[in-house]
Each structure stands twice: as C-alpha cells, then as structure tokens.
C-alpha cells in the first residue's frame, strides 16, 4: 500500500454555508449498508470476470478494460450521492455503470455488440450512457471526461438544482492539460464537482512515479486552491466517509474537491497486457492482503453483522444475475443493418 509522503490532505477553507439538501446518510455505516456495499462490489467483480471470459471466447471485441480490484471506490462514492447527481468517467467504466444502477444485461449486451445493449451495440465497452441514471459515459480519450464532467457541474449550478457532478479519472489522466484547465475553471466559478482520481498506480504500463512530478495526486488542485485528500480506496467505508465530506463541500457551494483514491487494478490495463511493468508479488500482495471485497466480508463477519450462510446467499444471487446477463448478451441479436445510419444527428 503506497502511503502518501506528506500530510494527505489539502485543507478546505471554512464552510460558508451548510448544504440545504440532506445528504444520503451519516458517516457511520450500518450493517445493512455494508452488506449492500459487499453485494454491489461482488456484482462488479463477478461481472468483470465474466466479461473477461467472454472476451477470451471472442464474444467481446476491441478494447475491454476491467475494473477488478477497484470496486470499493465506485461503490463507496455512489452511496454518497443523490438522485440526478451526474456521474462521468473514462473507459474503465463497467463498474461505474453497475454501481449507478444500470442493468447488467444491457451493459453486457453492449459489450457483445448487440441490439439490446445500452448504445444499441454502437458504442461498445467504452461508450455507454444512461440519462435515467445520470451516467454520462464512458469516454475513450484519456482526460476528456474531466472538462465534460466540469460542464455537467456548470449546468447544475446554472440550473440551481443543487446537484453535483462526480467526475472520475485515473492517475494517467491527471497529467492531461485539459484536466488542469478544467480544475482552474471549476475553482474560479465554484462549480459543484468532486474529482475522484482513481490512482491505481499505473497509467497503462507507466507508474505514477515514472510519469508524475508530484505523485500525491490529491495535491494537483493546489495551484487552484482546491482542497484534496488521499483515501484508502481499497476500503469502502473509508471511501464513503471521504466521499460524504467531499460531496457536501461541493453541494454546499464551496466549489470543487479532489479525492485521490489509492487503489489497484489486478488485471492488465486492457486484455492484452504484457504485465512486464510490475511484479507478480506486488499484484499478489494486493489481492491477498488488500482486497476490498475480502475486507468488507471480514468487517461483517468480525463484527457479527452477518454469517457465512447470508453471504453465500448473496454470492448465489450475484452469480445468477451475472449468468443471466451473459446469457442475455449472447442471445440478443446483432443490430439491424438499418441502425448504421441512425442516431448521427437529432431531428431539428
């Protein structure tokens, strides 16, 4: 576990006003909440394993970036937001969609390029959206979602609707110029955006140390006066606690906030990853000692919040959901050829 070298927070200015809209719950996590986090993380894990398998069988094409290992970040953050808060991320997006409540069948069917996929088979792994769940993609250009997420926050402020934007990006994106450009405007105009940096330590095969002058990514907003905080992204409870604070900061009109989620991806960057840039021991250490799902499981069992039988029932439920989604994704027909020409432009 990489520990930040310095004090892992950049302080926020004192609050001017409190949020007028109640947040989704207090800092402490109830047994039921923890159980639902466990379930949601497990859904992502099992879904991604199945996606990897379908990719291996040639049923999913092109690029496929799996979220395995990072589940606590998106599940913890999702528990801190309310209806209509915007969510946007990069191309490692399956976990975000499932956490946002999108139907696993529709997500898997998009992965297989079928007509019942969220984008009718025209987007693929990196390009899915759900207006209903306020999920704004799914973006394939590293860092491009950051100004867009900032623009979603701009729209929320413009409309005065008290919603915020959760804008996720990775340690690789953190060095893109447009990320700094967006942070400047967000701070300048006090936009309600939380930048969630998922620092999984490698942008493709290049480690943060080899790509980034200031490796404490939560400090990257300092030039714009944006408060930031490093968070144990393998601990869903810690993620939620930090998320509640950050979301409240943004929602109460105090502007952007940066959360650096220190996390780890177990799988390669995409499916064809040479795995030469990190050691097997490093990966194994995270898998065995830091796994977010094992951690939640242990918390529940140690705290006698649940028992093995109840967890087994969750496993079975998830297995069924994932199997059904894989079955659905293979049964759904390919898009009709007439779909080639639709959805290019909206009718005036």
């Amino acid at each position: 576990m990489a520990k930040p070298a310095t004090k892992p927070t950049v302080d926020a200015p004192p609050a001017k006003s409190e949020s007028s809209q109640p947040g989704p719950g207090s800092n402490s996590v109830s047994p039921d909440q923890l159980k639902s986090f466990y379930r949601d993380m497990l859904l992502i894990r099992r879904f991604e394993e199945r996606a990897g398998q379908l990719y291996g069988m040639g049923l999913i094409g092109g690029f496929c970036h799996l979220y395995i290992g990072q589940e606590a970040v998106v599940v913890g953050m999702q528990s801190t937001i309310i209806d209509k808060d915007a969510i946007i991320t990069s191309y490692r997006d399956h976990g975000h969609m499932l956490a946002a409540g999108m139907d696993p069948k529709g997500v898997m069917a998009e992965l297989t390029g079928r007509r019942d996929g969220y984008s009718k088979g025209k987007g693929g792994s990196m390009h899915m959206f759900s207006r209903e769940k306020s999920f704004y993609g799914g973006h394939g250009i590293v860092g491009a979602q950051v100004p867009i997420g900032t623009g979603l926050a701009f729209a929320h402020k413009y409309n005065g609707d008290n919603n915020v934007s959760l804008t996720y990006f990775g340690d690789g994106s953190a060095n893109q110029g447009q990320v700094s450009e967006a942070m400047n405007m967000a701070a300048l105009w006090k936009l309600p955006v939380v930048y969630v940096i998922e620092n999984n330590r490698y942008g493709m095969g290049t480690s943060v140390e080899r790509s980034t002058a200031i490796t404490e990514l939560y400090r990257h907003g300092q030039a714009y006066g944006i408060p930031g905080e490093a968070v144990d992204g393998m601990d869903v409870v810690a993620v939620r606690a930090a998320g509640l604070k950050a979301v409240d900061h943004a929602r109460s009109g105090r502007g952007p906030y940066i959360l650096e989620m220190q996390t780890y991806r177990y799988r390669g960057h995409s499916m064809s990853d040479p795995a030469k840039y990190r050691t097997k021991e490093e990966v194994d250490k995270y898998r065995t000692e830091r796994d977010p799902i094992d951690h939640a499981r242990k918390l529940m069992l140690d705290g006698r919040m649940t028992d093995e039988a109840a967890l087994k029932a969750i496993d079975a439920e998830i297995r069924k959901i994932v199997n059904d989604s894989a079955e659905f994704a293979q049964q759904s027909p390919e898009p009709d050829p007439s779909e080639l020409w639709t959805d290019v432009l909206a009718e005036a």
């Binding site: 946007i88 100004p147 900032t150 623009g151 450009e181 967006a182 405007m185």
Partner: peptide
Amino acid sequence: EKRVIDTPITEHGFAGLGVGAAFGGL
C-alpha cells in the same frame, strides 16, 4: 454574468466544459 461568461484562455478546457453543459441540458 451568469449568461455571458468570460473564460480563461483555455480553449480545450472550455470547449469540453461547454460540451458537458450541453449534455446537461443547456
């Protein structure tokens, strides 16, 4: 100034911000 907005000199950033605002219904 809510509707007529001076931006910093940051074309990539404000073009992207505009796209996000349009996705958001503006």
